[in-house]
Design a protein around this nucleic acid. Structure first.
Lengths: 127, 127
DNA sequence: AAATTAACGCAACTTAGTTGCAAAAATAAT
DNA sequence: ATTATTTTTGCAACTAAGTTGCGTTAATTT
């Protein structure tokens, strides 16, 4: 399934991702647009945008769904497995443009990785 | 909260972890013991065992809770951030006794990491 | 054996995410 | 420009994971 029509709901969500660098949890997005659109719509628009390669999803530390704008993931496949960072203080989640070496181990065949780093962001260290 | 009494429910769950090396999702454990104990009991026993440093929890790729026996995590704090591995074919999840180098980046202060590797396990490669 | 305390069961609840279907809106066709 | 077609949306209902409160049971302690 791909994007056939650029509706105003889709553009509203899209502009949120364009305006900020951080990742967004679906829960926060549903809340942010609760007066403008149904939560089902939010879920479906995010799904479409991911299929188009505009954003990518990942699972946060508490098991919630998060989405972030794609920078390096140019194709529809998002096979760049970049790590994500979560600030323990302010809750902000960001993509890290960083290659983490994933060693091949034992007899296994590892083809992807979800890496979630936790700590303090630059802003919260100062405080 | 710690373990005050070693009841038969607790011993039943404990023996599952002792008998196998793989991690277990809470969902699977609740199902496995559905005739023997309430799901609330399963959740609470797992919580107690984690506080005692017997097992440790992590979030799986689909956002579910998983638990595994502690090998290297000797204290109550589990600060060894070893990666976990999930087989895409058979669904098995395992701890990897492997140190992954987490680089300090930018101005951030990274103190922990959740690393989930995906691929094929040794058994599933053979098939 | 009685009292204390920890563990358990149950039911009800919360929250995230999904599904089916009818209505609305956007695009295409006549 | 109306009509027909297709996509998108809203709504309500649902599933599934995990939590909470409270009364009861069971294990220790005295």
């Amino acid at each position: 399934m791909s994007i056939k029509r650029k509706t105003k709901s889709l553009n509203a969500i899209l502009s949120v991702f364009e305006q900020r660098e951080e990742a967004l949890s679906v829960v926060d997005l549903v809340d942010e647009f609760k007066d403008d659109m149904n939560k089902t719509t939010v879920y479906r628009i995010l799904e479409r945008l991911e299929n188009e390669g505009v954003i990518h999803s990942f699972t946060g530390s508490k098991g919630l769904m998060w989405y972030a704008k794609c920078q390096t993931c140019t194709t529809h496949h998002h096979h760049d497995v970049h790590p994500h960072f979560e600030c323990k203080d302010c809750g902000k989640v960001e993509c890290l443009e960083l290659e983490i070496e994933i060693p091949q181990i034992n007899n296994r065949h590892i083809d992807s990785a979800s890496i979630m780093l936790q700590g303090q962001c630059a802003d919260c260290i100062k405080k």
